[in-house]
Design a protein around this nucleic acid. Structure first.
Length: 561
RNA sequence: GGCGGGGUAGCUCAGUUGGUGAGAGCACAGGAUUCAUAACCCUGAGGUCGCGGGUUCAAAUCCCGCCCCCGCUACCA
């Protein structure tokens, strides 16, 4: 049986997570995982923090914390946000704390080296004699060789926007001490992407089907696949294996090299905690596993070209990604989410007084699946009121309250004499409805939620045509049959809703008098002539305590900016 | 500069490999209804599919040019 190994891009442990991240790589993955599980599939959902790299060291130094403290702070903060959004990984770790990570990463280095895909080369870099370190571009300032501005950074000139080649910067200064750095020759290892591409990866890429927004991107990548440096001169990271360092010291593997390996080392850590350490190979080196990477579009090069190259280049029979459903960017109304520009909002505070499951559903309804999309707090209110409250929530409310008042809170029986007519009408109402599960499996989450809402609409139409409030006055048995059908339908809706709003779905399930967890109830097929055995036999069941599933929200005061 | 994406009803967006008079939700207008969270149901109004060429029997959908918006640019992943 197919196993599904699902990963979400490892969030970088130098800041909090915002809705752009959530919409890009985490919520879709969570929907996918929940959906597949409910459909009976075996799934493992792996994530953790990416904790190495120069941005971390700079951030920690500014915060006057140790690197360990700094990454722990963000690792935990990010996890809290995921928790409050109901994004549930099977394992959550971090590249600097996972006990398997260093060894696994070094093994990759050795294996790639053994296969001949690593190249060692001398390059020149700026070195600060006073601070005794090589300077990453972020540690250098100088005069822009393009416009003459004196405050150019090592990577970009803020005055003219030119992308700076650090070595060409005029009058470079060390950002830490202000002294002029010197050029020094240092040796580094490069990943031989051109060879990997020609040996295997290009053919593999061409043999796969990709989302349209991904395929355009990787086409260009194939043409231009340079050798990439995979080591750096610094201390924070996974050290180059001592047996391969060729006499050099003070070098670590560059963060982009070690980060994706985290998917594997986290899996191994998880497997050991399960008491089956070797099971990690079942997930990573077995053809029956489908590896799916959820990422934002900024990560396409790594997950479609670089990481697959690494996996294959080890010669260890790692599986290649089965799908990379990359999303475009999710922006805050008016522009991209940017903590540094202040164009963001406090997600934790927002979730304190906005129902996280409403946020999940709204974000799902606006996911940047094919193009950039944006979050708008006012639209969220509208969506909640028009779709969740008026359509789905109100459906439950009108059906269940009617039963509470007129049938003592007990779901009426379906009279066999009515079955044919009622199902005929019902199937007519949902004739155009599609199975949300099909769209979930195809990574079309927006449409999947639309499917669910359309199924709620179908039930509203059915009820409107049945008019049980009228039939109940003349033929209570008929009204009972109609309401029975509606309750059956509501229980299906609870199941379909579960991946999107797990708690709401469970609440509806309990209101219907259900037992256990709705997520364990399986995935219903859409009722129809070809699926006549859709009812589960709810007649006679006592309803649970009723409540408002999706309360209406007050419209926000128009934002100032 | 290079690369990628986008410009479709007032708003947010769908529109598979070109083909029945271009769609949904919101908002708007009219009607119907009263079980329900001023909800539900029916009907209607609405668009030169960024601009200009071209290919084709036929293009929002392919090609060329142009104009805007956005993202990325690989030692801030």
């Amino acid at each position: 049986m197919t196993r599904h190994l699902v990963t979400s891009a490892l969030p970088y442990a130098n800041g909090s997570i915002h809705l752009g991240h959530v919409a890009g790589a985490y919520l879709p993955a969570d929907l996918y995982v929940r959906g597949l599980r409910q459909m009976g599939e075996e799934v493992l959902f792996v994530c953790g923090a990416d904790e190495h790299g120069v941005a971390i060291t700079i951030g920690a130094e500014q915060a006057e914390q140790s690197y360990d403290e700094y990454v722990a702070h963000w690792r935990e903060g990010i996890k809290r946000t995921f928790d409050s959004l109901g994004i549930e990984f099977d394992t959550w770790s971090g590249t600097s704390i996972c006990p398997d990570h260093e060894e696994m990463t070094q093994e990759f280095f050795r294996q790639l080296d053994d296969q001949g895909y690593l190249i060692r080369r001398e390059i020149e870099q700026l070195y600060c004699a006073k601070d005794e370190m090589y300077l990453a571009d972020r540690y250098v300032e100088g005069t822009c060789y393009s416009c003459g501005a004196e405050n150019a950074r090592g990577d970009e000139c803020p005055a003219c926007g030119t992308w700076i080649e650090t070595l060409r910067l005029k009058e470079p200064r060390c950002k830490l001490c202000g002294e002029a750095p010197e050029r020094r020759s240092t040796s580094h290892w490069f990943l031989d992407l051109p060879s990997l591409r020609d040996a295997k990866v290009a053919d593999w890429i061409k043999s796969r089907e990709w989302k349209s927004n991904v395929s355009a991107f990787i086409k260009g990548l194939l043409k231009d696949a340079p050798e990439r440096a995979i080591t750096r001169d610094m201390t924070w990271g996974v050290p180059v294996p001592a047996d391969r360092s060729a006499g050099t010291s003070g070098k670590v593997l560059y963060v982009w090299f070690d980060a994706p390996i985290g998917y594997i080392s986290f899996t191994k850590e998880w497997a050991r905690k399960q008491g089956r350490e070797e099971d990690w190979k079942l997930w990573w080196q077995n053809e029956d596993t489908h590896l799916v990477h959820f990422i934002g579009k900024d990560n396409i090069p790594f997950h479609c070209l670089v990481f697959p190259s690494m996996l294959w280049g080890t010669g260890q029979d790692y599986i290649m990604p089965h799908a990379v459903p990359a999303n475009e960017f999710y922006q805050l109304a008016g522009g991209k989410f940017s903590t540094s520009d202040g164009h963001t909002f406090d997600l934790e505070a927002y979730l304190a007084d906005t129902d996280a499951e409403v946020v999940r559903c709204y974000v799902t309804s606006t996911l940047p699946e094919t193009a950039d999309a944006e979050f708008n707090a006012n639209d969220l209110v509208t969506f909640n009121n028009a779709q969740l409250a008026s359509n789905l929530g109100n459906l439950g409310s009108r059906v269940l309250k009617f039963i509470a008042k007129n049938f003592d809170g007990r779901i009426p029986e379906l009279d066999p004499a009515h079955t044919g007519d009622l199902e005929g009408l019902l199937f007519e109402c949902c004739a155009d409805c599609e199975d949300p599960g099909v769209d979930i499996k195809a990574f079309r989450f927006r449409r999947a939620l639309e499917d669910v809402l359309a199924l709620a609409t179908a039930a509203n139409v059915f009820m409107q045509r049945c008019e049980p409030w009228k039939t109940n006055k003349t033929d209570a048995a008929l009204a009972g049959s109609q309401l029975n059908i509606l309750c059956e339908w509501l229980s299906l809706l609870a199941a379909w809703l579960a991946p999107f709003a797990p708690h709401k779905a469970q609440e509806l399930w309990l209101q219907l008098g259900g037992e256990g967890q709705v997520k364990d109830a399986g995935w219903p097929k859409v009722p129809g002539p070809d699926n006549p055995d859709w009812r589960t036999g709810l007649g006679g069941r006592q309803l649970g305590e009723l409540g408002t599933l999706f309360p209406r929200m007050d419209a926000l005061v128009p934002a100032e900016n």
